[in-house]
Structures are given as C-alpha cells and as structure tokens.
Design a protein around this nucleic acid. Structure first.
Lengths: 328, 328
DNA sequence: TTGAAAGCGATACCAT
DNA sequence: ATGGTATCGCTTTCAA
C-alpha cells in the first residue's frame, strides 16, 4: 500500500539504485535524472522507510529517552529540549517513563536499544555498574548524573549554591537547613556536597534533616522538623519539596519569609504561581535536553572520542519566599 | 555485533526458521528443540530486531503519540497512561511535542507514520479535513477531540458540569462566569456547550468572557474583568487559568471563596497545592491515555470495525476555592 | 517437525 | 552517470 522506492523508480523511469542515490547524494546523478526523480517523489508522496534503511546502514534515525517520572514538572522541560534538538537533526524520539523504578529502566533500555542509535538517560536511578554495562552495549548519554567516563550533561551546583548562600548571608541568615531528596539520586548527593562547600566557605551553619520523597508531600512532611531546628532559612531538594513546606508553613500560620525563608531547586513553572513566589536555583532544563542530544550525536559520529562532559550553569531566581533573617 | 537469529540458530544447532518458529508459535516445534532454542536465546541474550521483523510482517510494534505541549501538566498525565498501557502490550512509544503548532503536527505525523502501526493524537489543533486525510492514510485515534467517524476518546462534559453547577447552586450561586480557552480547542467548545446546557437546566445565568491563552497568564489577565461582571462564581477553561485568577484575586485582596468562588477543569497536581486549594472537574488523564491505546490496538486488529468511541466520566473535586455565595 | 529459499524496502558495491 | 546484485535480520511459504 505505501509507496516504495520501486514505485518511484518506475515512475521516473530509472532504477531503484538511482532513486536512492538521487536522494542521498544528489551530486552523483545527472541533473535531468535528479529532477525526474524529484518530481516522481513529490508526485507519489514518497518517504523512505526508515526501518528498512536502518537495516542496512545500521542507523535508525531514532533515539531513546528515559525519564523517571513525567509527572514531575522538571522532566517535561528536559523532554521538550531533547525533542526540539532531535527534530532539528531529523531524529525521532522514543520516550519511556520508568516510573522511578530502577528495575524497569534496564528492561526498557534493552527493549529500545535495538531500535535506536543511542539512548539518553535522564536522572537514571539504576546502579553505577548497570550504567557502565549499558554504556558498553549501546551509545548512551547521561543527564543529571555522572558515572565514570560515560558522556554526561550535568549542572554545576557549586557555583549556583555559592550564589544562593551569598544571597542568604546578605540577608543576615547564619543557620540554614537542607531537606534532602532520595539517597539514590545523584543530584541530591551532588547538591548536598556543593552545599557543604558553599556554607563552609561562607561561615554558615548547615543543618541537614531526614531524606524525603521528592514531591509536594515530602515538603509537607519535613516542614515541622525544619521549624523545630530553629533555622532562619531552608533549602528544599527541589521546588516541589520547597512548595510543600510553604504549604505546611502557611497552614501553621508561620510567616514566610518573615519567620523563615524558603528556597528550592529547578524553577518549575509552579514556583512563580505559589504565594509567596518561590526563590529557586533554576536548572537549565531544555538546555540540558538539547546538550544531551548534541553529545549523543557527537558520540555516534565519532565513537572513539575522549570523554564528553558538559556542565551547565544554574541561575538564582530571587522571589518573595526569601527575605531578611528575623532578629534573634 | 548484536546477536542475531543466526547466532541463536547456530548455538542451538537448528535453522533460523526453527528459531523464529520456536519463538512465535512454540507449539509448532518439538518440545526438545524448543527447549534448546530457549536456552540458546537466554544464553546469548537474544532479542529479535523489531525493525527487521516489521519489514516483513508490516507491524512495527511501535506507536506514535502527539501532544500539543508537555509543559501543560495535563498532557504528561495522558502520556503516562499511554506509556503504561502500551508497555503492557509490548509496544514502544514515539512521542512528539508539537508545541501547539498545527503546521508541525502534520509534518510530524507524516514523519512518524512509517515507523509506527498507528498514531494517537492528543488534542490535535489541526483542521478537521486534515484529521480526516490523515485518518485515511494511517490508523489514528483521537484523544479529547471528535472528528467524524475517526475513533476517539473523549470526556463527557455535560454530566460533570451538571454536577458542578449543582454544587454551585447548592451554595447559593445564581450567576456564574466562564473564562474560555482557545477557540480552536475542541475541549473549549465542548465545555462551553455543556455549560450552556447545564446552566439553562439549573436556571443559572451564564456570563461568558473573552478567550484567553490556556495558561496561568490567561487567568491573571481575565480576573479583573470577571470581577467586574459581579458574578459570585467563575469557572476557568482549565486549572491553569483558574489558578491564574486565584493569583490575581489574591493580589487584589479579593477573598476566595468569600467574595467569589473559583473552579477549574483537569485536576492537575498543582490544584491541590495552591491556597485555597482549587475545586475542579477532574479529567481522567491516564485513563484517557490507556483507552486511546486500547482503541488503537483494536483498530489495528480489526480495521473494518465500525466507529469506535469511548466517552469517559469526569469527577468533581470539591476543595476550598468554592463556598457559599455572599449575600447580595 | 524441520530446513531451504524467497522476499520485505532500502543501500552499497561493483560493473558497465 | 547508471543498473544489477548482494545484503541487512527476520518471517513465511513450500517441500521434504
């Protein structure tokens, strides 16, 4: 039913080989022939079957993208970036939502790996050895995670947090709490590490609370404990957690930022919509996605290439949820 | 490099045909042989190349999904539903974000159609004739839209809105405003239609304002006009619009629901997080996605089937943003 | 019950 | 500059 290369060849009065050539390397065929082929293609509405092409070229023109949870507004941003960049290079994108399940990840990867030229794993939850093993089989790029020499796109947390802590100290804060996300999250470990550095440099005392789920509910759950520590400012693992705290604090009638300042990570759209609007360290979501595609394509073009790492910058978005520390 | 059917055949000491058979229709091969093949497959970690299989069977085992904008929290919900259901049937999903661009839609569809068995178009913005044309070429299922006899999954707005209006009248509201979304949105037209029915039945006066973009900013932009109409309750095109209104009303010091009650559509997670929490007509997002997959697979299995339409129910989530109408 | 051979749609190599 | 042919990995007749 669909039109094949043979149909075009017949219509143009040439061989299939010539049609293929006219499309792939136009300068190798006579101008007249090229024109006849071009016309036949347009007339019949021919589009080459990518699967068939992939069979012989070994290139599918597809790439795979795995994300832990699309319901977390952070990930759609990354997905959009990947989509947009991939489309520019005429790549189609397989998307899989792993539902935060490390076991599902490996399965999905295996399933997809045959149909794609490479995979982009966004914040994968699987273990390092698993990532390494995968990286041996298929070209992969990591987003928001670093594992050995696997190509990756990450965000520089230290610089951003230095800025953030600077902001807080300028407002008079001397004791700051951090509400950490999942222990298995690389980002969480990284943020904690960077936070220790930044606070140490600034002479600020860092108070760490227990780990929470990286959602609104996690923030709600953490708020009371944070308050009990007596800090004047708190940083949540991500915006959802921070907003959860905001909600619980409001319910308890605690003034933000009057009594306590609150900060998050990511800058999801939601952050501007809550009241008070959330001060947050913005992660370059779409840019992360785009850079991931770039790295992957580079890897495909030149597999022997040395390590590829891109580190992007985060930006502090100061909004109403942070203010002067209360006088003791 | 990757292990092919021949490798398995060699390892098992049989022909490729037998391996294929042992996998596809196990009952056609001798138990012993089947076992040897099974072992070889496991040993070598063989996974059939779907593209090659698709070439001959005409089935790719993939399906395509188009959404207007992943940044709108409504769509990730649908995507998750599609993903989950597709995975149950061992289908992989191509995802494309069309960025609300009707022109991009057609191109993406054409691009994807060769690599998938069928397409799911979620809230497509393209014109009806375009949808019909596409539907002729490729099996497609529509989500949140109905066009002629094209299979579709939609939500019954009338029943839900009857419930919603009943809720408002019970609270004493007699004049209600609706802030409509994009004119090109089928959902918007449908909601408006259903709203007219429901309000007429209940003897409630419906006030319609100008169309807004279906985002937070649209709600912010509409709030002042709504207030000026003097209604005691307002329904936004979706939750984002409603939350935008909430924000603007709060900024102006207008009490919600004291002075005016606010309602939305969708029940995105955000709705529970704002303050006051938003009363909303919940759309079955994941279920819509799952139903879409079911319809598509049914269509693929039996293309001559009569029209397929699934209509799902919405549910009213009553939260703090709606309350008794103020005394006049 | 099994194997040999043809063929899906496209590309690449080798002739011409 | 162009056509013929082998091939990619797999499924599906057709014989045996």
């Amino acid at each position: 039913m669909p039109v094949t290369i043979k149909d075009v060849a017949r219509a143009a009065g040439v061989s299939a080989s010539t049609v293929s050539r006219a499309l792939a390397s136009p300068d190798l065929v006579h101008a007249d022939t090229r024109e006849r082929v071009r016309r036949a293609v347009a007339e019949l509405g021919y589009h080459p079957n990518r699967a068939a092409r992939g069979l012989i070229t070994g290139r599918t023109g597809n790439l795979g993208l795995l994300v832990p949870d699309l319901a977390n507004p952070f990930f759609p941003g990354v997905v959009k970036g990947v989509q947009a960049r991939a489309r520019e290079f005429d790549y189609a994108v397989f998307l899989a939502d792993t539902d935060e399940d490390p076991a599902a990840e490996a399965g999905l990867v295996r399933n997809l790996s045959k149909q794609v030229d490479g995979l982009i794993l966004c914040s994968p939850r699987m273990s390092e050895p698993e990532v390494r093993a995968l990286s041996g089989d298929t070209p992969i790029v990591l987003l928001n995670r670093r594992v050995g020499r696997v190509p990756s796109v990450t965000v520089n947390s230290v610089d951003g947090l230095r800025h953030a802590i600077g902001h807080l100290t300028a407002l008079g804060h001397r004791r700051v709490a951090y509400v950490p996300g999942p222990k298995v999250s690389w980002s969480n470990r990284e943020r904690l590490r960077a936070l220790r550095t930044a606070t140490a440099e600034a002479g600020v005392e860092l108070v760490e609370t227990g780990n929470v789920v990286p959602r609104f509910s996690g923030g709600v759950a953490a708020a009371d404990q944070v308050l009990a520590t007596g800090v004047s400012a708190v940083i949540g693992y991500n915006d959802l957690v921070a907003i959860g705290m905001l909600s619980r604090l409001a319910a308890r009638g605690v003034a933000v930022p009057g009594r306590i300042s609150v900060m998050g990570f990511d800058d999801i759209v939601l952050s501007e919509m809550v009241s008070p609007a959330l001060t947050t360290l913005a992660q370059p979501k779409e840019q992360t996605g785009r850079a991931g595609v770039d790295l992957l394509l580079q890897l495909l073009a030149d597999p022997g290439h040395p390590i590829q790492r891109r580190e992007l910058d985060s930006h502090l978005m100061v909004r109403d949820s942070t203010g002067p520390a209360p006088h003791p």
